[in-house]
Amino acid sequence: MKTNFKFLALFLSLGLFLQSCSSDDDNGSVVGLDAPEITDFEYGEGDDHSTEAYAYKGSDIHLEAEIYAEAVVSTITLSIHAEDATAADDEVDWDFEQIYTDEDYLVINPTFHEHVDVPSNIPAGEYHIELLVTDTEGNSTEVEGHIEILEVITLSDFSIDATAVRGSDFHAEFMINAVHGIHNISVDVHAHDLEVGAGEEEWDYEVELEDGYHGETEVEFHEHFDIPATAPAGEYHITFTVEDEEGNTEEYETHIDITE
């Protein structure tokens, strides 16, 4: 009988010890929480909250994602950088990174929604996007994607005379795509250091064209330009400049040989 009583006392003591250990664990830090989940990650042109993966220089990118987090979110980090785009002389490299700690995000299950301005002086091309979410337990999750940054004005399919006879004309045509609509198109024709002979006059031609182009977002430029019979023969420099309704410009330069 005494043996049974001792066994029962030992069993009860062990139970109390295990319960005490369990209680200590419950009062400590929470362990075993899963890392945050990021779903419905979308991004695109900001003006119309597009989900197509492109945006324009000088505009903005709309980004949105749903975040499921068992622990409170501590930071959301967004980074954007170029893949293979190379900056021209008048452009700069764009490497964007921002850590968001807004109160709306430092909760369980926040919705991420931001607009990021795209500089107008960066190279067009493909850019890499990364979204990193970290919670207060140190767990983190990252999603990534790619977005194409496009020019707001593009010129293509050029067909411009390389030579012309003075006293006749030269022909120029090309396609224009302007997201914000065309304001005007200027044409500048001039020569450098051509000798002006007897009966000749220096030819320096400039014109601004709006009729048939103003306000258009996609149009074919097609014009003929008269060459004075008195223009000195030689090489002339031609610059076509398209300006849109936002003040953005795009140029195309070429040369033409004027012959007698």
Rank of each mutant, 00 (worst) to 15 (best):
E260K: 07
N177D: 15
T217G: 08
G15H: 05
I147W: 06
H62W: 15
P36W: 07
H146Q: 11
P119W: 10
H237L: 09
E260P: 08
I122W: 07
T154V: 12
H81A: 11
Y56K: 03
E253Q: 11
G28Y: 03
S156M: 04
E42K: 10
I153C: 06
E220H: 00
E220T: 04
A162M: 10
V30L: 13
I176D: 00
D25N: 14
S74W: 03
L18S: 14
I258Y: 01
D193I: 03
T217M: 08
L131E: 07
K6L: 13
H255M: 09
T249C: 02
H237Q: 12
E126P: 00
T141H: 06
A87P: 13
L209N: 00
I61K: 02
T77E: 15
E200P: 04
W94A: 02
E103W: 07
H180M: 08
Y236A: 01
I160K: 01
D60M: 06
A124E: 14
E246F: 08
V118A: 07
A178T: 06
T86F: 06
F170R: 01
S168Q: 13
D211I: 03
E206Q: 11
E253K: 10
E260W: 08
T249Q: 14
E220K: 00
D257H: 05
I147S: 03
S120V: 10
E202G: 13
D34Q: 12
T101C: 04
Y236Q: 07
V242Q: 01
M1K: 06
K6S: 10
G197K: 10
I108E: 15
E45H: 07
E216Q: 11
T154Q: 08
L12A: 11
E202K: 06
S59E: 15
D188V: 08
D24S: 13
V92E: 14
R166G: 05
D89Y: 11
I129M: 12
S13L: 13
M1Q: 12
E246D: 12
D204I: 11
N27V: 13
K6H: 08
H171I: 01
